[in-house]
Design a binder for these strands. Structure first.
Lengths: 195, 195
DNA sequence: CAATTATTTTAATCGTGATTAAAATAATCG
DNA sequence: CGATTATTTTAATCACGATTAAAATAATTG
């Protein structure tokens, strides 16, 4: 689900490009990274990127789409596993933390929403809101089944998402640290939820 | 401690300028905001900013300095209040959350570290590391005095700082929400620390 | 008020980076 | 191999934003 749809050379290159772009955007922000930056990660020239993408804005847009897709998949999988609310939350936290430090690369670019075109921005914001809402619903389920202490689910969700989204700011690729993140984060974030 | 050193007209204007800049940087990132953006918040022309600051880089640098100062002051005050480790942590969380949504404006600009000049970058990173270290030490004190469950203080600190630093991404000035943040965040973040 | 200082604007310059079109190279297919 | 398609580069263009210097305006001080 995280990879390209078909294994054509084109889609593989485009996928590499998105990873490189996400990496750069995370490091220097949207306007801070030039297309030359991204291209040099691939051993290409800046103009070559236009073969894969209409313009720079589309590049961020696709990065966001990829991030949203990964987040959704993590939540899907966590929910699919069943169990009490708290169990599903824990599973989700582990999966989300895993892809933040994992192979797909640092995919969750730091909020560059204002850089998006109006329609793309609406789409991404809508996906983001939907994701938050699903997560909050999970918290509510946990509250209902008694596995989670009653709380302000909106604020709790904001706090947890913040902790996850901030990871790219201090994680710089050390695999030992990646391991640490995946093993400790779910517990650090979920323990406060229990009754 | 958060305001200008002297109440001269110059320093007051400069202070307004830093708030406006922090606001813009939070919204659109360093390279995404033009000096014209910042200036228009003050009813000025872009060139006027150069009367207060050497260049754009110095503007971010000062924003970071201000953020570091506020963070340090919050930690100072929290520690000064005494009590068990967990009590000091809770107090700090409240103070930090308060200035993130409070009068000083959204001061903690989102990591634009790479935009800084080498020497400024080193200084800010050093301040940031020192702050994290002090917070981790607080956690350790709590572990020692039994008020905090033993945990990976590095990862726990990262998670908590992430939740706090992410606030400007979803908080947009609604005073009711500000109230909510200040009252709920300390508990949301601290509850998971207790034994 | 006159003189001096503080602040802001106007009007350049200057480089950078996105974008495009045309040309060159690589890959594939008969 | 020759032809066609896919990919990348080279070489422009073009706008925008940082920066500066000189001129204008506002504030203050004697």
């Amino acid at each position: 689900m995280a990879g390209p749809a078909e294994e054509t050379r084109f889609s593989l290159q485009k996928d590499r490009m998105l990873k490189a772009a996400a990496l750069c955007f995370n490091r220097k922000g949207y306007s801070g990274t030039s297309l030359k930056d991204v291209a040099s990660h691939l051993g290409l020239t800046d103009a070559a990127l236009y073969y894969y993408v209409r313009n720079k804005e589309e590049l961020v847009y696709l990065c966001y789409l990829r991030a949203a897709e990964l987040g959704r998949a993590a939540l899907d999988e966590a929910i699919h596993g069943g169990g009490r609310g708290i169990d599903q939350v824990r599973r989700y936290l582990g999966l989300h933390a895993a892809f933040m430090v994992g192979d797909p690369g640092p995919v969750a670019i730091m909020s560059e929403i204002p850089s998006l075109k109006a329609d793309h921005r609406e789409e991404i914001l809508s996906l983001s809101r939907a994701h938050s809402a699903r997560f909050e619903r999970l918290l509510e389920e946990g509250i209902d089944d008694g596995s989670i202490r009653p709380c302000d689910v909106r604020m709790t969700g904001n706090a947890i998402m913040g902790a996850l989204n901030w990871i790219p700011k201090w994680y710089h690729g050390d695999p030992a640290v990646a391991e640490q993140v995946v093993t400790t984060f779910p517990d650090i974030l979920a323990r406060g939820l229990e009754p």
